[in-house]
Design a binder for these strands. Structure first.
Lengths: 230, 230
DNA sequence: ATTACTAGACCTCGAGTAA
DNA sequence: TTTACTCGAGGTCTAGTAA
């Protein structure tokens, strides 16, 4: 059960700063913003709190409100939709990060035939074993969210007798101006880490060591350039 | 009278391409997207057409729908709200362009004392004479528009007996990872050209010649700039 | 001043159905 | 197949009011 109206309420709350921290807002003040009665505003807040969209701290004379986990997700999804509409021809995402040691799961992808065969076919290169891992600066994390909206180049999961291997999405990218491919496993825990694969040893080519800051460009490439240029 | 629900309908229509041109969509298909009944979808379309949010072309078996002037405005307003929420702390603009020969007016700025004094004070360097000019790729022109919203570092205009010299705005920037400053005269004709000043000869340092492609990052804020809206 | 409950007015929805 | 009307059920709103 998901009320369409809540999106608007969440949006208005976000606009007065409830995204970052608790803001003091009375139900009457909110009703003025929303153009409804105090009672309705109050009801919205109660319902939204119950659904986990917002957190509230009720005082005797004032309440403080903050957008919760679920509310943030809803707003983000909405934002992405609008981005798709208005920013449709966006071609790439730029961000900064720093090199870290490999923690990601991406190393599997570079050594298992079931994956490397797909790389050869879909990316037209055989990656060297291992991935270059970049932790995205937190100022740029929001930019990463945009990636969710794009399919990229699909790498299919598969199964052997022993276990199953998950799928992933790939995006052509540049790291410090050198072409590479970023690979995002479908099921990953590290939402701030990008893993790069390449036909070269990126660390050597770029002369990188842990902690080095790098500039990354991720090509979203919705154009038809990737798929079939026969 | 303005229905909140219509925003969602408009958004879904926009996502299937109704922003650019007429799309064929039956009321049943729309109802599936919206998660409501065919009757309700039909009613939405009728109401929204009446309010000027959409244009319709009714055929005998199919209708074609396009987002109208008013609908476009509503979506745009919505998008801007979300931009405020999520893009508020945007720190820089990334774009690509190519080096061109100096056509801009920026060369004045690097040779006239009235300007260079301000550069020394506000940018803390004395630029070498001349500017590096970059024509922005047209895919990134929309990104440039965002610059309008930022004051940057103000360079004041001034007058001598002979003539008057206009003001400009400066932004710290990077061109192919080398720090530089982009200078935008208040009155400029070339809306797709960026002019860079630097304490070094950028062409030499970066080994650039006309036609070379460069990556540019423009830093919007020097930290604690207030974000007062229009 | 607050928040939020209750009750009834009002509106919105979708099944049925016509064209 | 379409679009879109009517109308009754049920959901949502606000006035009144308590705490």
């Amino acid at each position: 059960m998901m009320k369409e109206r809540w999106i608007k309420v969440l949006k208005e709350l976000a606009l007065i700063g409830a995204m970052d921290s608790y803001v003091t807002i009375s139900s009457r003040a909110l009703s003025k913003i929303l153009g409804c009665s105090q009672q309705t505003a109050s009801r919205y807040l109660i319902e939204m709190e119950r659904m986990g969209c917002i957190d509230r701290k009720l005082g005797i004379r004032k309440q403080r409100v903050r957008i919760g986990e679920k509310g943030r997700e809803l707003l983000q999804r909405e934002y992405l939709d609008y981005k798709k509409i208005f920013d449709a021809r966006r071609r790439d995402i730029f961000l900064k990060g720093k090199v870290i040691s490999g923690l990601g799961e991406g190393k599997y992808y570079t050594t298992i035939d079931g994956y490397t065969e797909q790389f050869r076919k879909k990316l037209r290169f055989t990656p060297v074993p291992g991935t270059l891992n970049v932790r995205v600066n937190k100022d740029y994390l929001d930019r990463l969210m945009e990636l969710k909206g794009y399919e990229g180049i699909r790498i299919e999961g598969f199964s052997t007798e022993d276990r199953s291997f998950g799928g992933a999405r790939c995006f052509h990218a540049e790291i410090n101006n050198l072409d590479a491919v970023v690979i995002i496993p479908d099921r990953t825990h590290y939402m701030d880490i990008l893993e790069f694969i390449s036909p070269f040893r990126l660390r050597d080519r770029l002369n990188l060591k842990d902690g080095d800051h790098v500039d990354v460009i991720i090509h979203l490439g919705d154009g038809d350039e990737e798929s079939g240029d026969s």
